[in-house]
Nucleic acid binder design. Structure first.
Length: 430
RNA sequence: GGAGAGGUGGCGGAGUGGUCGAUCGCGCCGGUCUCGAAAACCGGAGUGGGUGCAAGCCCACCGUGGGUUCGAAUCCCACCCUCUCCGCCA
């Protein structure tokens, strides 16, 4: 959510930033609503002040025993009442109109974000590791001989439809190991605070992170109104909603391992094979709540936390900074980390790390009290995957596959696998 | 699901119709005292909005939304949430 005062102070800058996102200028219409809104507020409050004064006088008249004056004031107030009701309703309508207009406008990119209309404008900022040289044609994860039988899309479809999977045997054990490894690494090495949250949340929680009202079709809702979280970013970030924290308590760096649910509306036909894009998947998420001036440093820190997981797993990746046209709704700046998938011969997104500045905080009314004194200010919020567990499973399988259909597993996972080091050609953990 | 209790400022806790935005205590900030600290004493301090160059002034906020009244933290209604007990249950 944007601050109308900022727009009022510099409408040209606002429109210029919108145009970098490929959007038309909006400041003029927003300011027109704002002007009407403020005029109504002034009128309503002026009328209210008059009524308050009369009521106070009425009390005085009554206690003096001046019945005539009391009756006169009483009639005056009664007469004013309709005016006030009308003016207040108008003021509220204008206020709501402004909010409705503002809440669907995406966050503005930072100056340092590269311009671009779509993913073609993204800029690679670094690359780590070297894709293996295969002396055979590497397969996609679901085609690997030892894996196929333990990654059952057919029966999942029987239970639930497309974009679901049933995992068994060595594959599910590896999947579980990955989630635990990520969580342990973030808690032990990166000092993130492990958190367990609900995955069913209220509408206002979804609103706080910007998933509502604009993106309702991307998520699932229960019959009694709860939303299934599309990412743990939603519950983690909203932990500070409506609160005022002390600056000394910041930054708050959290991580959580949760199920995520996405309708994948609009991605029909995309990534239909394998478990790259599922309606239900696991993700280890990171969320940081900090002061606005530290947000960029925290953004780099969080990116490094995500990259560290891939480095420990020995999976080659590249990190890109998304251009203005490819960023998500709430983001000011986003790093995507893309893991190398030999089966696809491509880098594919495995993490997205964003700083939202004060955009979400304004929606959530999440603030901090500055140590130096002064008024509470909105916090900055950041979120990033660290990492998507299912996609990481794919990366580990495809990068570790051998000609005979077996898979060598990264050393850091061995302790999580009871000391086992690979999946044999027959699909056993050995 | 049933019964009961309760939701007030950072926290605790008063306040049952008229300068109550709200007594008080703790905590917090500034000062006096002290070599320094503690204690004591003095003073300050809510959030949002509108208006103004500013000082300031005005409006709203005592879970939420309505209602009664000239006037509501206080009365009435609905809803939400929390806690306790019972039932059921992973």
């Amino acid at each position: 959510m944007h601050d109308i005062r900022t727009i009022r102070e510099n409408p040209a800058a606002f429109d210029a930033a919108l145009s970098r996102r490929g959007l038309v200028s909006m400041s003029a219409q927003l300011l027109a609503i704002d002007e009407a809104r403020r005029a109504r507020i002034l009128a309503a409050e002026t009328a209210q002040a008059a009524q308050n004064a009369a009521s106070k006088e009425a009390g005085g008249a009554k206690s003096r025993g001046d019945e005539a004056e009391f009756q006169r004031l009483r009639a005056f107030v009664a007469e004013k009442k309709d005016d006030i009701a009308r003016l207040t309703a108008e003021a509220e309508a204008q206020d709501a109109a402004l909010k409705t207009a503002l809440e669907v406008i995406p966050n503005l990119p930072l100056d340092q974000v590269p311009d671009g209309a779509d993913e073609a404008g993204n800029v690679e900022i670094r690359r780590w590791g070297h894709p293996r040289n295969f002396d055979f044609t590497p397969k996609e994860h679901f085609e690997i001989a030892s894996i196929a039988a333990q990654m059952d899309f057919t029966r999942a479809a029987k239970l639930s439809g497309s974009r679901f999977v049933v995992l068994q045997g060595a594959v599910v054990r590896l999947h579980r190991a990955l989630g635990q490894f990520m969580l342990d690494t973030h808690v032990n090495d990166h000092e993130l605070q492990e958190t367990w949250t609900p995955v069913l949340v209220k509408s206002e929680t979804m609103y706080g992170t910007g998933n509502l009202p604009k993106f309702a079709e991307d998520s699932y809702q229960t019959t009694n109104g709860w939303w299934l979280v599309p990412t743990a970013e939603v519950p983690l970030t909203n932990l500070v909603a409506g609160e005022i924290r002390d600056e000394a308590d910041l930054p708050i760096r959290m991580t959580a391992h949760t199920q995520c649910f996405r309708s994948e509306a609009g991605s029909a036909g995309k990534d239909t094979s394998g478990m790259l894009r599922q309606h239900q998947f696991e993700k280890v998420e990171m969320v940081t709540i900090c002061t606005p001036d530290t947000a960029l440093a925290e953004h780099d820190r969080m990116t490094a936390c995500a990259e560290a997981i891939l480095q420990k797993l020995g999976i080659p990746y590249r990190t890109i900074v998304l251009c203005t046209g490819d960023m998500g709704f709430g983001s000011q700046k986003t790093h995507d980390i893309e893991a190398w998938l030999p089966g696809q011969n491509k880098f594919r997104e495995i993490s997205s790390v964003s700083t939202c500045g004060q955009f979400q905080a304004r929606r959530m009314n999440a603030r901090f009290r500055p140590t130096a004194g002064g008024k509470p200010e909105f916090v900055a919020t950041l979120n990033g995957s660290g990492l998507a567990v299912g996609r990481c499973l794919i990366a580990v399988l495809e990068n570790g596959q051998q000609a005979d259909g077996s898979v060598d597993l990264p050393a850091v996972l061995h302790p999580y696998l009871g000391g086992k080091t690979r999946i044999s050609a027959t699909g056993a953990l050995v």
